[in-house]
């Protein structure tokens, strides 16, 4: 059981300082979670700390590959709204 960080991570460091298991490490592209170290914070905290502070939706996945913070859950911008705004910008 371990979470994972994927490429949408923006390297903001917020999760690194909080991890009780020192499972999070920097790489040349983005932060990653060492699966053998990650405890999903069990025994330390009620909620996985990395996923509780990460500001980027869909950057951290659970052990089944589902986003801990799905699109729209943090920014309040629904995926449709974001898509529409991006299209409008590109059309300019």
């Amino acid at each position: 059981m371990a979470l994972s960080i994927v490429e949408s991570c923006v390297n903001c460091w917020a999760c690194v300082d909080l991890c009780p298991s020192e499972a999070i490490y920097a790489t040349s592209t983005h932060f990653k979670i060492a699966p053998n170290k990650c405890t999903e914070c069990e025994g330390d905290y009620a909620n996985p700390q990395c996923a509780s502070i990460c500001p980027i939706e869909e950057a951290i996945l659970d052990s089944l590959g589902r986003a801990m913070n799905p699109a729209g859950s943090l920014t309040g911008i629904s995926p449709e709204k974001l898509e529409a705004a991006m299209q409008e910008i590109q059309a300019r």
Partner: peptide, 14 residues
Amino acid sequence: APACNIQCHYCNRK
């Protein structure tokens, strides 16, 4: 100081 502990609607960390 890269990390932040809140989200503001006028900020985009990306």
